[in-house]
Design a protein around this nucleic acid. Structure first.
Length: 887
RNA sequence: GGGAGAUUAGCUCAGCUGGUUCAGAGCAUCUGCCUUACAAGCAGAGGGUCACUGGUUCGAACCCAGUAUCUCCCA
């Protein structure tokens, strides 16, 4: 009788290599047709929710996305198989500064300058561009196999999410948590906006240090030399500071000095902040243009003179070089200082300047009027939920980082001087005061109330030009994707929130993760997620970050085309422990491809078997053993998942498939060429194969789905994607089965080692004589010993035959008669070495057991183990001594 | 300058409560095999003073102190 595994074979099972390109698109389409990725509130199931860290709407897939989304997909697919209602919400981020910079650059190519456009016209261009190129990245994720519920795709700037942002802004403003204030910000003069710290790129440069002479007032000819890298800012100086302990400036404190060229008098102040060994030890204080100086100015109550315009040119307060760009002014003032004899010297030194990630402009620390959010009130509960493990961070070391940041949290500058983003819903009255409201008409009402002027019209109000920081929409993401602001009691949010796991990079722990926690607690009184898994940064084999400039970043789509999505996914995961950077190496992807190929060939083998119903069940031992092995592996894999050890889980499946199933189990049950197999064994083998496909599916969704359908006839909705995850239930005698097989396999390994040592080749039939202390056990595994060891004969005896190679396992001796291959001296030497080793081991255990304090202090189970070790060592020594006598 | 973390095989990393294992995995390396599923493969082997110096302990990769080097975060 013939048991067929599948009705049709779209793939050619005679081909020895698996070709992923033939099947991947097909299965992704089928999954979508079947609606497997769609999630709906279902009270009978436990929800499992993941919100994607939304990539930039105009971005394209890079290696970091590959890693991050592979991990999410593994978690989501496994949850789905565990019978949970798995909901993975995809979407994109409007990424205000990045996208605006791209649109500005694009318009420039078309000869259009942003400044010549109205806000409305610019946004029209931006939306047109977003509609054309936006969301490409989501299509790319499908090629990776990402099982997102695409019907739920959101965009942080779509109307509903924008409404959520505005509601939150108004709410927090009314709670008194949002205010306007003047602060030192990172100003991008080219982009004309404040940017956040993470949007700056530090650049190593060789800068010049200029030594300038400030004349001491009332002491003509006496100068105080000050070192500065920014001579063009001396017009904004308000003091010169020295360290109070610095002997060189004794007596100068309280004196006044004259700013070079300008002649304005400023005081000399003392502060410990000043480093005595940097520059000349005298520091010019320019509060408007340096953050440290600003703080120094606050401390000493100094005035602030801001000499720069928003575009980086000098304003009239500078008095000199007005209208010139800061760098032109620098060149000119150096010339003039030199001419005036006030420039002592110029030194080169290595320095770091901050530049804008988008416009590349050198960042200017600048005082400006911005919108801020108070963080203290929000940070406190957000810290607590991480401290008390309501939210767990993986790896846990990030708890420390999180704590330090949350305890020193500073107010959040939420305004950006851009157009692409959510415009701040504040409306200025003609008198300069303002109101905050969701809509213009509400604003008008408030404005009339506030001003007492009922004649005010909407056209009298001027809406704030600034937009909100992108993170001000992404911090609401886990709530807003379920419309939790507009409709706080809807079925989706009640069911899917809080989400389960968040997978993201540690670089946005503060900007995103911490703020989502705050938002969750503030607006829903509930954490946004239970676990946060931090991935590492993908680097090249030399440890460098992937970057376009270095050209060290492969195109993920090329990789998928070349190796298959499954191979790329496993390649990323093979070496990606949580929080550790991943050194990407194409070899890992090759390893993934090889693994897919291994699986494919195992399938080809099993597929080729024909069952003969007349044959008796011949492989009860292998079948029982692999059942136990599988159960143990499932338990181990589940444990790895519970601890978010994703790459360990993968490695465990990898070894189960490759070593246990292919190298051992299949070799044990494999019939001789073109011989039939008994039906019972084939039935078990097929069931095991299916279990392996299930365990592998989260990691390698495509090949497992393909083989699932090849392996047996399937109903219309019978897909491994929705198959139940294997249960770990181990058979009662599992431990004994595993231990027994280990002993048998040790004998096989011994025989194979002899084969290799004696250069016998895999085919030469050998005879094995066993002087075993467990003959019954070995007899039970005789079939396996013969097959895997290539034995033509297995006999039990009390003594070894002459002219045999021997090896010792535990208390048993094994002999392989090999006339003509025996080198007596070498045999003796080998056994003696082994004996000496065993004796040394015994002695050390004996010594430990003989130590009174050990006997007193060690736990009973430790003591018992040591005694067992001693007994085992004694047995082995006896057997070795016997073997030596026989040589 | 302040803080956090790391250092285990050639590489990337595990190693849980100090004792199952006189230190484990994957990859790489070496040797031998084109053995009727797979050379993208099979069988076997070698490879470590657990950064260094002390300390605690019957016992330390693990706990403590110091040193060195590296990484990240904050300023």
């Amino acid at each position: 009788m013939l048991i067929t595994c599948a009705d049709s074979l779209p793939m050619n099972p005679t081909k020895t290599t698996y070709t992923p390109a033939d099947v991947e698109a097909k299965w992704y389409q089928r999954w979508q047709e079947q609606g497997f990725f769609k999630a709906r509130p279902n009270p009978k199931k436990t929800p499992y929710t993941v919100v994607i860290p939304p990539p930039n709407v105009t971005g394209v897939l890079h290696m970091g996305h590959m890693l991050n989304n592979t991990i999410q997909d593994v978690l989501v697919r496994r949850a789905r198989m565990l019978g949970q209602e798995a909901c993975w919400v995809p979407g994109t981020d409007h990424a205000s500064i990045a996208t605006e910079a791209k649109v500005v650059a694009l318009l420039k190519e078309q000869g259009i300058e942003k400044k010549d456009l109205t806000r409305e016209a610019f946004l029209e261009h931006a939306f047109a561009w977003k509609d054309k190129y936006g969301g490409i990245i989501l299509e790319q994720l499908k090629q990776l196999g990402a099982s997102c519920d695409w019907d739920r795709t959101r965009f942080t700037m779509e109307p509903k999410l924008t409404e959520a942002v505005l509601r939150v802004f108004v709410d927090l403003y009314r709670k008194g948590l949002i205010y306007r204030g003047v602060r030192m910000v990172n100003w991008d003069p080219l982009g004309g906006t404040a940017i956040s710290d993470e949007e700056m790129i530090p650049k190593d440069v060789m800068a010049k240090m200029y030594y300038l002479n400030y004349e001491v007032v009332g002491q003509p000819g006496r100068f105080l030399t000050v070192a500065t890298s920014r001579p063009e800012t001396i017009m904004a100086d308000v003091a010169v500071a020295v360290n109070p302990t610095d002997e060189r400036f004794r007596g100068l404190a309280g004196q006044r000095v004259r700013i070079p060229l300008l002649g304005r008098e400023i005081p000399v102040i003392q502060d410990e902040y000043v480093l005595t060994d940097f520059g000349t030890g005298a520091l010019k204080v320019t509060p408007a243009h340096d953050l440290n100086d600003y703080n120094l100015g606050l401390k000493h109550n100094l005035p602030i003179i801001d000499i720069l315009n928003d575009d980086g040119t000098l304003n009239e307060k500078a008095e000199l070089y007005v209208g010139q760009d800061r760098f032109a002014a620098r060149r000119n003032i150096v010339k003039d200082l030199e001419a005036a004899g006030l420039l002592v010297k110029v030194e080169e030194y290595a320095s770091i300047v901050q530049t804008s990630e988008r416009t590349k402009a050198v960042i200017e620390p600048k005082l400006s009027m911005q919108w801020f959010m108070k963080m203290e009130h929000l940070a406190k509960p957000a810290l607590e939920v991480v401290e008390n493990d309501t939210i767990r961070l993986y790896p846990a070391k990030f708890k420390n980082t999180y704590r330090v940041w949350m305890e020193n949290v500073r107010d959040w500058c939420i305004s950006r001087q851009l157009w692409w983003g959510q415009q701040i819903p504040a409306y200025y009255l003609p008198d300069g005061s303002f109101v905050v409201a969701l809509t213009a008409s509400e604003a008008l009402e408030l404005a009339r109330e506030q001003s007492g002027n009922n004649e005010l019209k909407i056209s009298d109000l001027r809406q704030e030009e600034d937009v909100l920081d992108t993170w001000f929409s992404s911090w609401l993401w886990p709530i807003s994707v379920f419309d939790g602001f507009a409709d706080p009691d809807n079925a989706d949010i009640n069911y899917f929130y809080p989400t389960s796991d968040l997978v993201t990079g540690p670089d946005i722990l503060f900007f995103w993760v911490a703020r989502m926690i705050m938002a969750g607690l503030e607006f829903r009184q509930e954490v946004p997620f239970r676990n946060v898994y931090f991935t590492g940064i993908v680097r090249d084999t030399q440890g460098r970050k992937m970057s376009k400039q270095l050209g060290n970043s492969p195109d993920p789509l090329d990789l998928i085309a070349q190796f298959g999505a499954d191979a790329v996914r496993t390649g990323m995961l093979f070496s990606a422990p949580a929080g550790n950077d991943l050194l990407y190496d194409e070899k890992l992807v090759e390893q993934g491809r090889n693994f897919a190929n291994k699986l494919w060939n195992a399938f080809r083998l099993v597929k080729g078997w024909e069952a003969d119903a007349a044959l008796p069940f011949a492989h009860d031992k292998p079948v029982a053993w692999f059942g136990a092995r599988l159960a143990a592996a499932v338990a181990e894999i589940d444990d790895h998942f519970a601890k978010f050890r994703i790459s360990d889980a993968l490695l465990a499946v990898y070894k189960l498939v490759w070593d246990d199933f292919c190298a051992l189990y299949l070799e044990m049950v494999k019939p001789a060429y073109q011989q039939p197999i008994d039906a019972e064994t084939l039935r078990h083998t097929t069931a095991y194969f299916e279990a392996l496909l299930k365990l592998l599916h989260p990691f390698m969704p495509f090949i497992t789905e393909e083989l699932w359908h090849e392996l047996g006839p399937r109903g219309p909705r019978d897909y491994v994607t929705v198959a139940p995850w294997p249960k770990p239930g181990a058979p009662a005698d599992g431990a004994a089965l595993l231990a027994g097989m280990d002993k048998a396999l040790a004998v096989v390994a011994g025989v194979r080692a002899v084969r290799n040592q004696k250069n016998l080749g895999p085919n030469k039939p050998l005879a094995l004589v066993a002087k075993s202390d467990e003959p019954a056990l070995l007899a039970a595994y005789e079939g396996i010993l013969r097959k895997l060891g290539g034995l033509e004969d297995l006999t039990f005896a009390d003594a070894g035959p002459a002219g045999a190679v021997s090896f010792v396992l535990g208390g048993s001796e094994f002999f392989i008669p090999l006339e003509g291959h025996i080198d007596v001296a070498a045999e003796r030497a080998r056994l003696e070495k082994e004996l000496a080793y065993a004796q040394g081991f015994r002695d050390s255990v004996q010594k430990k057991l003989g130590n009174e304090k050990f006997a007193q202090n060690a736990k009973p189970d430790v003591l018992a183990r040591e005694q067992q070790k001693l007994a085992d060592a004694e047995t082995k020594i006896t057997a070795l001594e016997q073997a030596l006598k026989g040589v």
